[in-house]
Amino acid sequence: MKRLLNQQPSTAGRMLLSSLPFLVLLLIYLVASDLRLEANPSDKLLPSFTQMGEAIQRMAFEPNRRTGEYLFWVDTFSSLQRLLLGVLIAASFGLLIGLLTGALPLVGASFSPVLTVISLIPPLALLPVLFIVFGLGEVAKVALIAIGITPFIARDMQKRTLEIPREQLIKAQTLGGNTSQVLIRVLLPQLTPRLLDAVRLSLGTGWLFLIAAEAIASTEGLGYRIFLVRRYMSMDVILPYVAWITFLAFLLDWLLVSVNRKLFPWHGHGGGA
């Protein structure tokens, strides 16, 4: 018998081990839900899977009686739109700020301190300000996401820029490269996969700000719906919605990883000596 430290699961064993926690959680939920529903059939706290299925059927595949919309998809679409727009804006600004502050010492000296201070402002504390300035519409929600994650991406990009070996910049200059050429040909391409990594890390925060903004002022959206139906204790809607949000987050993460692997095969090989 090998030491525990050295024991590796086989491929099949690994699959079994990784699915085990999911199965256990599922089982616990099923048993708990059954017990509660048996004691009180109108219990709302732990709905059965049939009840959740019915709720989703109602939300996703039947038009709403009042508006005629398929609420589930309307919610999904507007939430994703806000999130992606906010993240896109944050990524663009973050990349630009990070690249310039990291690559140009003069820009870095003027903006690094203020960037650090700004990144310490809790974005949610700014939400009222955003609602006052931009009104209760889409702009404020997108702005919250953008403002919330831009400082993180900008600082990460600044750090990644400084991590790129100086030797490459010197080499490009000895070949005749000027400042903009070095930025565009040497730094920018190497930052792109690192930007996607930073976006992956900030998506979780992005969802947080999205749901917070939707909970406070919105007329549709995944976060809005969850907070709306909370009033009726509709766990049969809330739980599938949470699962759906989790799935979307997973999907986005997986997409970014795949794009990175496909487009930047050289990424993650330690700068390639």
Partner: peptide, 20 residues
Amino acid sequence: AEPDRDRGIVFQQYSVFPHM
């Protein structure tokens, strides 16, 4: 006092562009 085309350089490492 800055690198230019008069002087070429090869370092021990990191002298080539890893993304190309």
